[in-house]
């Protein structure tokens, strides 16, 4: 169990180092020409959930896709090459940050329109169950997506078809700059609305990777046993701006109070996990430092690799739009 818990921390550190490094390069180079939504501060949701999946389970996400992609085992070099628009990218430079995919790892795709991958996961989950397979589909989305009509439609559809789908709501309190209080009434939570639709649902501290992981294991067992859909509402917080590499809680920038952001940064999921593990492993901080160095080398290597790769051939502009290409 300890090794499993250490692995959760390690995966979070890897994602943090990758994203912080990418954010620096994104800002300084102006070469990753794709709108990029960093998950820095939200690593526990992606890692806790994805570590509970099997390779055969599929994960879909919304635009904030890097952390679940990496947590699910998506290829780092292919992701970075995609950000640089290269042919070696996971979507061969056609998708960008918001359209990542790694089918071999079970990362089935990310997409950018709020809520649109929610029913997609229901359909995949239903197809799995129809084939008699004990597999689940997982879909990550934010609190903002729960305001889309398709969220309510999908809860209902999943419940009535008993689809083995795990809905993962990363409630980070803001839709771009709009606070949840301006968008959703006080009272019924996202969890409550799922439950009202007939979907088993729980709220979990989304910055506690161990709690998220346990909840996801329970949820996925429920799905695979044929007990129907499940929703996790995970409270978390993004540290950076909605899209782009910067912080946006400084003086005069703000739609969110600096004190609020600082309080959430103090609840860093990596620090909290290390605090827990330190009781059993006094050397954990040294281990984390070693990981930071290791993953720093890995992401710098991936960036160097991506930069060396060729751009797609312009002659192949239309490839894939149709198969066969129409006359």
């Amino acid at each position: 169990m300890t090794s499993g818990r250490t692995r959760l921390l390690r995966d979070m550190v890897r994602i943090r180092v990758v994203e912080e490094t990418l954010a620096d390069h994104y800002r300084d180079e102006q070469e990753m020409r794709t709108p990029t939504h960093f998950s820095i501060g939200q690593e526990a949701t992606a890692v806790g959930v994805c570590a509970a999946t099997d390779t055969r389970d599929w994960v879909y996400t919304a635009h904030r896709s890097h952390a679940p992609y990496l947590a699910k085992g998506g290829d780092l070099k292919a992701m970075v090459a995609e950000l640089y628009g290269k042919q070696a990218g996971c979507s061969h430079g056609r998708g960008g940050s918001i359209h990542l995919i790694d089918r071999a790892a079970g990362f089935a795709g990310s997409a950018a329109i709020l809520g649109e991958m929610i029913p997609v996961a229901v359909g995949t989950a239903w197809a799995f169950a129809r084939g008699g397979e004990a597999r689940a589909a997982v879909t990550f989305f934010g609190d903002g997506a729960t305001e889309e009509g398709v969220f309510a439609e999908s809860l209902n559809l999943a419940a009535v078809r008993r689809a083995p789908v795990l809905f993962v709501c990363e409630n980070n309190l803001y839709s771009i700059s709009s606070p949840i209080g301006a968008r959703q009434p006080a009272g019924p939570t996202i969890r409550d609305r799922a439950e009202a639709a007939g979907v088993t649902a729980v709220q979990v501290d989304g910055n506690d990777v161990f709690a998220v992981h346990e909840a996801a294991r329970t949820a996925l067992r429920h799905c695979r046993e044929g007990s129907g859909p499940y929703l996790l509402e995970l409270a978390t917080y993004r540290w950076r701006e909605h899209v782009g590499p910067g912080f946006d809680h400084g003086d005069g920038q703000g739609y969110r109070p600096a004190a609020e952001t600082e309080a959430w940064i103090a609840r860093c999921p990596i620090v909290r996990a290390a605090d827990v593990l330190r009781e059993q492993d006094p050397g954990i901080d040294r281990t984390v430092a070693e990981w930071r160095a290791l993953f720093g080398d890995e992401i710098r290597g991936a960036i160097a690799y991506a930069k060396e790769q060729p751009f797609p051939d312009v002659a192949a502009l239309l490839d894939g739009a149709y198969q066969p290409v129409p006359r």
Partner: peptide, 19 residues
């Protein structure tokens, strides 16, 4: 259900899953 949006998304996901 009377959910044209979700049903079409469901179909996309089913097709991605081989249906």
């Amino acid at each position: 259900p009377n959910s044209e949006n979700a049903t079409a998304g469901f179909a996309v996901g089913a097709a991605a899953g081989g249906m």
